[in-house]
């Protein structure tokens, strides 16, 4: 029996010892917002936050997450109030097919939590592990920069 907190809720679930956090989220907890693009830690689609740090859920096993706090894309908005990153991704078209979006948002959130006023270079570096095939990354980098400003303004 695994106990973990996801987006502020406590879950207890049976798991296999070789089951990944990605599988636990999608198949045991029904949180399908987290995507898979390779299951080998190569594409970044399954990025979630584990105790605030970005991890690739497809490489995380149950014994690493006992009592941990996991944040997924489903936990970004506050009710119906979207996170400034989500607002900026929408406004600037940073999500096209949307399949990399969850991972992008969480990598970006980890960056902004750590560095509220990043340079474009820092944004590009923080997202370098997340593959996107639609956007060419420009609108994503712009969206993260815009969200950083919005968050700064709100502080």
């Amino acid at each position: 029996m695994l106990r973990l907190r996801v987006n502020g809720e406590t879950y207890e679930t049976l798991t296999e010892s070789n089951e990944t956090l990605l599988e636990i989220l999608r198949e045991r907890l029904g949180l399908t917002g987290t995507k898979h693009g390779c299951e080998l830690g190569e594409c970044g689609a399954c990025t979630v936050l584990l105790d605030g740090k970005p991890v690739l859920a497809c490489l995380v096993l149950p014994d690493q997450i006992e009592d941990a706090e996991v944040t997924t894309v489903e936990g970004l908005a506050d009710g119906s109030a979207l996170h400034p990153l989500q607002e900026a991704f929408m406004a600037l078209g940073a999500s096209q097919c949307g399949y990399c979006t969850a991972g992008m948002l969480l990598s970006a959130k980890a960056l902004l939590d750590e560095q509220p006023d990043p340079t474009r270079e820092e944004i590009r570096a923080a997202l370098a592990g997340n593959v996107c095939r639609c956007t060419g990354y420009a609108s994503i980098v712009d969206a993260v920069a815009q969200a950083a400003q919005a968050l700064q303004g709100a502080r």
Binding site: G33, F89, M90, T101
Partner: peptide
């Protein structure tokens, strides 16, 4: 924004 933008960014 695209018409399905909210769904895309909320998972």
């Amino acid at each position: 924004p695209r018409v399905d933008a909210v769904s895309k960014v909320t998972g």
